[in-house]
Design a protein around this nucleic acid. Sequence first.
DNA 1: CATTACAATCGTAATATTGCGATATATAAT
DNA 2: ATTATATATCGCAATATTACGATTGTAATG
Lengths: 109, 109
Amino acid sequence: MGLTKTEIFTEEQNQLSMLLKALAHPARIAILQQIIAAKACICGDLVDELGLAQATISQHLKELKNAEIIQGTIEGVKVCYCINPKTWKLLEKQFGRFLGSYQSVDSCC
Amino acid sequence: MGLTKTEIFTEEQNQLSMLLKALAHPARIAILQQIIAAKACICGDLVDELGLAQATISQHLKELKNAEIIQGTIEGVKVCYCINPKTWKLLEKQFGRFLGSYQSVDSCC
DNA sequence: CATTACAATCGTAATATTGCGATATATAAT
DNA sequence: ATTATATATCGCAATATTACGATTGTAATG
């Protein structure tokens, strides 16, 4: 046990939960906010900004990259990270539809 | 190690990531979709609908309840679950703001 | 080529999550 | 009271996550 039964869920349910999982950590939220705030793409400044070790930041970046929420391009010694617009749009669409499917009726318990 | 350093993040970052974490599982997405689809609140029908054991569903419901995304009221032997409109609105607001803070500029890497 | 600087990866410890059988609890029906 | 039905909880095993020190890999610079 201990592993999610992805096979019993729909493609959409799995995809959405995967994206949300990638976002579901305060450090990763903070990282994304930093990347967005710095109009240009920042790099290892994240290590200074947040109070986490370099290895930890790198690991969080990897997860965001795996989920294709961000993309990184090598710029000499540094690496430049930025939002992947395609996934961001997908997230807006998918999660928007999910959230919108509920209309507060307050006819319930 | 192995525990999130919540103290170094903002209230908002922690709150948003906590809500997203509660949603970040295909079973919990499916549960919420069921609850929303059944206009009235359904109960243990979830166990039949999804292919998971009763104990597992109950545990997922507990997590959603802890995050205050759903609320349950006892109706005789059964329990009636439904969306907590307050938290749903909060989620729409917080996550909407987060998503909206990025404007696809494609001026980047 | 040696050095420096940045970032990724490895290894490890602590903790959390997922799933389920078994059991407990609580209400309803007989 | 006994039985049936619906949920919650406990305990466990398998796996995943989080964090970080140490190391490795790359590329620019002296």
